[in-house]
C-alpha cells in the first residue's frame, strides 16, 4: 500500500522511529502486564507447562483430539462440497419445482446459526427416532447443512462468472444441459471460486470447535477438559491448543493464497475467460459469496 504515502524523508523517518518506539513499548508493556498478572496467579509454574514436553501427553491426549478435529473437518468438507454442488446446481435448474424448494433450503440453512442447528439435530433425532445421534454425527450434519448451503452459493456465483458465450457455444455443438453444466460450467466455476472454497473450509475447520459444546471429542475437548483433569492447567492448555489451531488455519489459508496465485489473471485478449472472484463479492440478499467468519 505504499501508494498511500511517500518514501519517508528524514523528518518522516524520525517520526516513524518515534511511533515504532511507542508501538513496541505499548506491545511489550501490555505483554508484561499480562505476563506478571499470570505470574501472580501461578500460571507460568513449570509444573503446569511441563506436561507439554511429555510425548505421552501429545500421543495420548492432544493428537487423538486433533485427529477428532481433522476427521470431523474432512468428513464434513467432503459431504458439504457434495451437498453444495447438488444444491448449487439445483438452484440453477430450469425447472421451477426444483429451483424454488432448493432455494428455500439454502436460504434457511444460511440464516440459522450453526450451534442452533447442531442442538436441533441432537434433540430432534431423539424426538424422532428415540435416540440421539452421536456428537460426531450431529456435528457433521450441522456443518454439512450450513457449509453446504454457503458453498452452493459460491458454486452458483462461480457458474455465473463464466461468460454466456461459453454455454451458448456448448449448446451449439449439441451438448445437453447436464453436459454443459458438467463439462463446461462447473470445472471453470470451481477454478474461479477455489480461493473462496478453501476459505470456507478454514471456516469449517474453526467451526468444528463448536462440537465441544455437544461433547464431541476434538482438540478443544482435549485441551479444555482432558488435560486439565490430570494437570490442573486449563489456561496453559488453552494457549497450547490456540497455537495449534492458528497454525492449522494459517496452513490452510496459505493453500488458498497459492491456489489464488495459480489461477491465471484474466487475459484481456480473451474476453470469454472466467476470472477469479474476490471473496468479498456479495449476492442480492446481502450475504457474502465466499467465506465470512
Amino acid at each position: 500500500m505504499n501508494v498511500l504515502y511517500e518514501t519517508p524523508g528524514p523528518r518522516a523517518r524520525l517520526r516513524n522511529n518515534v511511533v515504532t518506539l511507542l508501538v513496541v513499548t505499548a506491545v511489550l508493556g501490555a505483554g508484561y502486564a499480562i505476563g506478571t498478572r499470570l505470574q501472580a496467579k501461578g500460571q507460568w509454574d513449570s509444573a503446569l507447562w511441563k506436561p507439554f514436553l511429555d510425548v505421552q501427553v501429545w500421543t495420548g491426549l492432544l493428537l487423538p483430539g486433533l485427529l477428532g478435529t481433522l476427521t470431523a473437518t474432512v468428513v464434513s468438507a467432503v459431504l458439504a462440497l457434495t451437498f453444495g454442488v447438488a444444491l448449487g446446481v439445483g438452484r440453477m435448474s430450469a425447472r421451477r419445482w426444483i429451483r424454488v424448494p432448493v432455494g428455500a433450503v439454502v436460504e434457511f440453512c444460511r440464516a440459522i446459526p450453526l450451534l442452533i442447528m447442531i442442538f436441533l439435530v441432537q434433540a430432534g433425532s431423539f424426538a424422532l427416532l428415540g435416540r440421539s445421534f452421536s456428537a460426531f454425527t450431529s456435528v457433521v450434519i450441522g456443518l454439512t447443512l450450513y457449509n453446504g448451503s454457503v458453498l452452493a452459493e459460491i458454486f452458483r456465483a462461480g457458474v455465473r462468472s463464466v461468460p454466456r458465450g461459453q454455454s451458448e457455444a456448448a449448446y451449439a455443438i449439441g451438448l445437453r444441459t447436464s453436459q454443459v453444466m458438467r463439462h463446461v460450467l462447473l470445472p471453470q466455476a470451481v477454478t474461479a471460486m477455489m480461493p473462496a472454497i478453501v476459505g470456507q473450509l478454514v471456516v469449517l475447520l474453526k467451526d468444528t470447535a463448536l462440537g465441544w459444546i455437544v461433547a464431541y471429542e476434538d482438540l478443544l475437548n482435549a485441551g479444555i477438559r482432558l488435560i486439565p483433569a490430570t494437570f490442573s492447567n486449563l489456561i496453559p492448555a488453552a494457549m497450547v491448543i490456540a497455537v495449534i489451531y492458528i497454525a492449522l488455519n494459517i496452513g490452510l489459508g496459505a493453500l488458498a493464497v497459492r491456489l489464488d496465485r495459480r489461477n491465471p489473471a484474466p487475459d484481456p485478449r480473451i474476453p470469454g475467460r472466467a476470472k477469479a472472484l474476490s471473496p468479498a463479492r456479495i449476492d442480492s440478499r446481502g450475504y457474502a459469496i465466499g467465506p465470512v467468519t
Binding site: V85, A86, V89, G90, R182
Partner: peptide
C-alpha cells in the same frame, strides 16, 4: 466434477 451429476451427488450425500 466430471463423473457425477447433481441429483446423483445428492443421493450419495
Amino acid at each position: 466434477m466430471r463423473t457425477s451429476s447433481g441429483p446423483r451427488m445428492a443421493t450419495s450425500a
